[in-house]
Simulated scan of single mutants.
Amino acid sequence: MTKPYPLLFQPEFKERVWGGRALEQFGLDIPEGHIGEGWMIADHPNGTTSIVNGELAGRGLDEVREQFGREWFGSKGFSEVNGRFPLLIKLLDCNDNLSVQVHPTDDYEGLPKGELGKTEMWYVLDAKPDAKIIYGLKEGVNRETLKEAMENGTVMDQLQEVSVKAGDTFYIPAGTVHALCAGVVVAEIQQNSDTTYRIFDYNRPGLDGKPRELHIEDSLNVTAYEGSGATTMSTEGTAPGEWLELAKSPYFVVEKGVVSGAWSLSTSAESFTIVVVCEGQGTLSWDNGSIDYTSGQCFLLPANLGAYTLDGQSTVLRSYLP
């Protein structure tokens, strides 16, 4: 019988017109090209990650989910909509501006079959001095003014820009108009969805040389004009050995922790735990093993793992289901 242990995966890398080479800073062996996304823990038709450590090496996350089910992923760990793993964990390299976009809720009628809505959060791992993001609409923008701006090319005048630095965090519920801009590297925790509606893409060609599709009607339909509940915070000064809550949604809780020496923790029977190593290194140990960790790695800890210890000097994110 396979005992539960922390799972580490081979990322699925995605070339994007806005991507670059920044994920190499984490020691990741990324393919040639403009790599914008590393899907670190994924169970989706557009990318499924495979385990690289321990007894289950070579098995996909989908296979492990099917074999070990609720015991490993917790009583809350199944998506009742499509059976897949409920979250998607990414690292993003924004070498150029991403398209201005918005994501639907789970109940949007236009969703592709089997797809979920997309509520997400970003933790900024690295940012150039003048880096910024687009985060929400300006006061008073409604469907009519946004539609008019989309038609006459003045969308950028309707959007809020926010300066960012490493350690900032942004919660982005479905319906929030947003875009990462050039010069940031982020960790993203999101619902397991790959549905994006583009509002504006800077009139640039895609990787195939043709303009990328815009989704005017869907975007106008799903945007939360009265506010979506988006929140942001700086996480400077997080005390070692204490969890700081960054985002809490119906789909995930994300907390930041600073590891300084040994920190004894435990999983819960209700949910798996995901640990994203933002910086530093150390050792992750449990009752019958240990593994060294370093920045950029993302571990899936089964719900039935129980007690575990993070040791070393590092900054981590912890995610689980609420």
Rank of each mutant, 00 (worst) to 15 (best):
K3S: 14
P6E: 07
Q10P: 03
K14E: 10
R16F: 01
W18Y: 06
R21A: 11
A22S: 10
L23C: 04
E24T: 12
D29Q: 15
I30V: 14
G33N: 08
M40G: 01
A42W: 04
G47E: 06
S50A: 14
S50V: 14
G60F: 12
Q67V: 07
Q67S: 08
E80L: 15
N82P: 03
R84S: 08
R84D: 05
L87D: 03
L91R: 08
V100N: 11
Y123W: 06
A131N: 08
L137G: 01
L137R: 05
A149Q: 01
V155Q: 02
S163I: 05
P173I: 14
P173M: 13
P173C: 12
A179D: 05
A182V: 02
A182Y: 03
G183N: 05
F200M: 11
N203M: 08
E226Y: 02
E236T: 13
E236H: 13
T238D: 02
L246N: 05
S249A: 09
V254Y: 02
G257R: 06
V259T: 11
W263N: 14
F272H: 10
I274E: 01
C278A: 15
Q281I: 00
D287V: 12
I291H: 08
S295Q: 15
S295R: 12
G296N: 04
F299E: 04
G306F: 02
Y308A: 08
D311T: 13
T315G: 03
T315C: 08
R318K: 15
Y320M: 09
